[in-house]
Design a protein around this nucleic acid. Structure first.
Lengths: 109, 109
DNA sequence: TGACTTTATCGGTAAATGCCGATAAAGCGC
DNA sequence: GCGCTTTATCGGCATTTACCGATAAAGTCA
């Protein structure tokens, strides 16, 4: 659902970007992303250990991150292995860089 | 309410970061930020011209961005002049950089 | 097959969000 | 003071979000 296709209309990519930012714009999900970045990959149960929230809640947060394209999932046995999508973070990074560059050009500091 | 004090507990700054990301994680607000980055500064009325939304809606979006510390406001006559806070964007940038760096270290690409 | 582990999904609820029109507030110029 | 312009705030509404417990689904292994 996210990032499958290489081509996006500007406006669509704009919405995609907002979706990604929104996904990591929640304390729990931001922490999940950090935890994932610190390990190679992790499963839902492991993530649950980092929080006092219920398993279903964590699973749903992971699902939001997946739908936004921030993480990818791979089934391994009974577990689901989640890992960061670097391309997603880099897309956000270039978006931010562009904003900062634009702001630097025309906004007196 | 945002960024006034230099010292923040790690967890607090974590929440702040999420708040900023959430603020720009909305298509309208992301576009507002882009518009502001392209100009030096702008007022609410000018922003309204970029959208088909009502004035009160745009005003509220600007307020969200202000509360999150993404933009600053300066009253000028009857108008409010909004402009990007580069320090905020840069804070997000370094957050993202840190994440990408962590992911690069331990996540096989 | 059946017990077990792990994750996803369902149903429900309280709170937050996004939007609007109407109105208030603040600052001009006459 | 009185209009005028611009912005902020209020009340209300529909939708979304975040959370939970319960349950279903998928996989492993004896």
């Amino acid at each position: 659902m996210a990032f499958e296709h290489g081509f996006l209309k500007p406006e669509t990519s704009h919405i995609r970007t907002a979706e990604m930012l929104k996904a990591i714009g929640h304390p729990v999900r931001l922490k999940i992303v950090r935890e994932l970045a610190e390990r190679n990959a992790s499963c839902c149960g492991e993530m649950c250990d980092c929080f006092t929230l219920s398993q279903s809640t964590i699973s749903q947060h992971l699902s939001v991150l997946k739908d936004a394209g921030i993480v990818s999932v791979k089934r391994q046995g009974t577990k689901s292995s989640f890992s960061i999508r670097q391309d997603a973070l880099q897309a956000l990074q270039s978006e931010l860089n562009a904003l900062i560059e634009m702001a630097r050009c025309c906004c007196d500091d």
